[in-house]
């Protein structure tokens, strides 16, 4: 199969996915989401005022009419104004997305790299003490609620009752001169990164370990060991390369979910004005234009990742290309 076919196949399969995701989410929003008209109407509205607000918000239009309008918004990438905040949705997203990127990138990358290293250590010492220690640590990380970790880390590292090393909350990464400041950035991103690491290491390590253990039992690894290849050579060249497809798939597919939907808890608790905070506020307020945009972006991101994933997989494993 040519690269072009490989690239466009996910787009073709992605269109039904996009339609499905947007339709289901829109259905949920319309029939089960909050109705803003009652809160927007104020304390003592008349029935007529309520109807007027419902009309202005488009609640009185039919489902299919509204859904088709949503698809048009998706194509033109113009989701109008937030129902709640009076800001343009695209400008809210374009402000929030870089913040989320900078907030989550260290935790995301370090989480995957450290997990992979720990998983390799555990796999290499499968069943032995190191393996058990790493796996026990992973289970502990997975077992503690993310919210508890966030509150505890904030207390330990940021509050006067703890080490008081970092700011409690907020996001001021520009210095007095208005320029990007690495020092400020590192201060504000440190505690969120540690919290992300603590929680995600367990999941990622266990997943990567399972892949690597499965791979290291294969004949080509045993053959390499029989030929006397170094451990570094075996793990770096043979094992990792052959396990790359599931590893890359997990890595790529977590990108849109993490960066577009954002880390709801992290951002809302640390007061970081990113996508997670934006989405959380929109969910709480029932702000449909923002929710529609976030859902659509996540779905588009997934389709793009499917496309990249297939391309990368075919590059890593030529057999896929030939088949």
């Amino acid at each position: 199969m040519s690269k072009w076919k490989l690239a466009f196949k996910p787009i073709l399969t992605g269109i039904p996915l996009l339609l499905g995701v947007t339709w289901v989410s829109f259905l949920l929003m319309v029939y089960f989401g909050p109705d803003l008209s009652y809160t927007m109407a104020g304390k003592n509205p008349s029935t007529e005022q309520l109807q007027l607000i419902r009309h202005n918000l488009g609640y009185d239009q039919g489902f299919w009419h509204r859904y088709l309008a949503y698809l048009k918004e998706l194509v033109t990438f113009d989701f109008g104004h937030s129902m709640y905040k009076d800001q343009k949705v695209t400008s809210m997203i374009s402000n929030a997305l870089p913040t989320t990127f900078y907030t989550l990138l260290p935790g995301f990358l370090l989480g995957h790299v450290i997990s992979l290293v720990l998983a390799m250590l555990a796999a290499r010492h499968q069943g032995r003490f190191i393996d058990k220690v790493i796996m026990t640590g992973s289970v502990i990380g997975m077992s503690i609620s993310f919210l508890v970790v966030i509150v505890a880390f904030q207390l330990m590292f940021s509050s006067v009752h703890g080490l008081d090393w970092f700011p409690v909350r907020g996001w001021r990464i520009h210095g007095v001169d208005g320029q990007w400041s690495w020092s400020l950035y590192l201060q504000y991103v440190a505690v969120p990164t540690m919290a992300i690491l603590f929680v995600t290491l367990g999941y990622n390590t266990r997943f990567y370990r399972a892949i690597l253990v499965d791979e290291q039992d294969k004949e080509h690894i045993m053959t390499a060991q029989a030929y006397g290849h170094s451990t570094f050579n075996i793990y770096g060249k043979h094992l990792l390369k052959n396990a790359l497809i599931p590893l890359m798939t997990r890595f790529l597919f977590s990108i849109p979910l993490v960066f577009i939907s954002g880390a709801l808890l992290i951002e809302s608790h640390f007061g970081i004005p990113g996508m997670g905070q934006l989405t959380y506020d929109a969910i709480m307020a029932g702000d449909q234009p923002i929710l529609k945009a976030v859902i659509a972006l996540t779905a588009v991101g997934l389709v793009l990742m499917m496309m990249f994933s297939d391309l990368i997989n075919s590059w890593v494993d030529p057999r896929l290309r030939d088949s």
Binding site: R172, H174, D177, L186, Q187
Partner: peptide, 21 residues
């Protein structure tokens, strides 16, 4: 990375508010 972050200067209350000024 953590050490650098911890050693970095704490944002002063007044200066941060006057970003760019």
């Amino acid at each position: 990375f953590l050490f650098l972050a911890a050693c970095g200067e704490q944002p002063a209350s007044n200066t941060t508010a006057s970003q760019g000024k």
